[in-house]
């Protein structure tokens, strides 16, 4: 039971969305965009989020796009994780989305919600970061299509009133070797304590992480060490971890030491998997 009231809007065109946002914002209603709603509803019940209006973007046809267009795979932000997984357009994407929440929740939880929500995992972004994908953002100032790595720094850097419409990746990534290892405290239906997603392109490994630190990230510095084959495999891993842009997280799910141990183990498995290196 959500104890407070909010208004609900479901526009069907981008212009309607923008107008609705501007209108509600000018009334001081602090509108928020609503995808699957799974996070908004749970946080609203606990009153850890408050809003006076939600704008459901799932009726925008653009948010339901799931296809290949001119060599790019396009995923609408209003797609449920299940829809993306089942399409299997991008195997690594499906693989990373599959352990998020549970099967029933994934029927509701949307791509946009996972990336733009407040929960600090945002695992759906990881394959997009390593695939150097793009995001299509729409807001009062118009529409922009930008490289994801320029607008994602632990969170998607959205301007006021802006929302995620679509993500895109170059189709070529689907044939790139990849690696994904997600570890949980114990139960598989849980947030990750470490999640590493890696893609190998042009002989170079690209890596993105969730769960290991307070927020998800991709780090070019870490990649420069992991790809430095002059070092021993052990060193590549150790140095890469030393350069983590955020400290290891410690919380009720795991200590920082355990996260580090699992991450080291995952990275060894990654090298074994992508380079045939046995560490």
């Amino acid at each position: 039971m959500i104890p407070f009231d909010f208004q609900y809007y479901r526009p069907t065109t981008i212009q309607e969305v923008i107008n609705t946002f501007n209108d509600l914002d000018s009334q001081g209603l602090s509108p928020i965009y609503y995808g699957g709603g799974t996070e908004i509803i749970t946080m609203a019940r606990k009153e850890s989020l408050s809003t006076k209006a939600v704008i459901d973007i799932k009726a925008l046809p653009e948010t339901k796009v799931l296809e290949e267009v001119k060599g790019e795979l396009v995923f609408g932000a209003g797609l449920s994780l299940s829809e993306i997984i089942e399409s299997n357009l991008f195997t690594l994407f499906s693989k990373v989305l599959r352990p998020i929440a549970d099967h029933t929740v994934r029927n509701k939880l949307t791509l946009g919600g996972n990336i733009c929500g407040r929960l600090p995992y945002r695992e759906a972004i990881l394959p997009l970061l390593v695939a150097d994908g793009k995001v299509v953002l729409v807001g009062p100032e118009g529409r922009r299509e930008v490289d994801i790595n320029t607008v994602f720094d632990k969170r998607l850097l959205l301007k006021k009133g802006e929302f995620l419409l679509q993500v895109k990746v170059n189709k070529s990534v689907i044939s790139s070797p990849y690696f994904n290892r997600r570890k949980e405290k114990q139960t598989l239906v849980d947030y990750p304590i470490t999640n590493i997603v890696a893609l190998k392109e042009g002989g170079k490994i690209k890596m993105a992480f969730s769960g290991v630190a307070p927020l998800p990230f991709r780090s070019i510095e870490m990649e420069s060490f992991i790809n430095n084959k002059e070092l021993s495999s052990e060193e590549r891993i150790t140095k890469a971890i030393e350069l983590m842009p955020l400290p290891f997280k410690k919380d009720h799910l795991a200590s920082d030491d355990y996260r580090r141990a699992l991450l080291e183990k995952s990275m060894k498995e990654m090298l074994a998997n992508l380079e045939g290196v046995i560490v």
């Binding site: 405290k185 114990q186 795991a254 200590s255 355990y258």
Partner: peptide
């Protein structure tokens, strides 16, 4: 008996 407690 969590995995972490066993690992420790």
């Amino acid at each position: 008996l969590t995995p972490e407690s066993i690992w420790k």
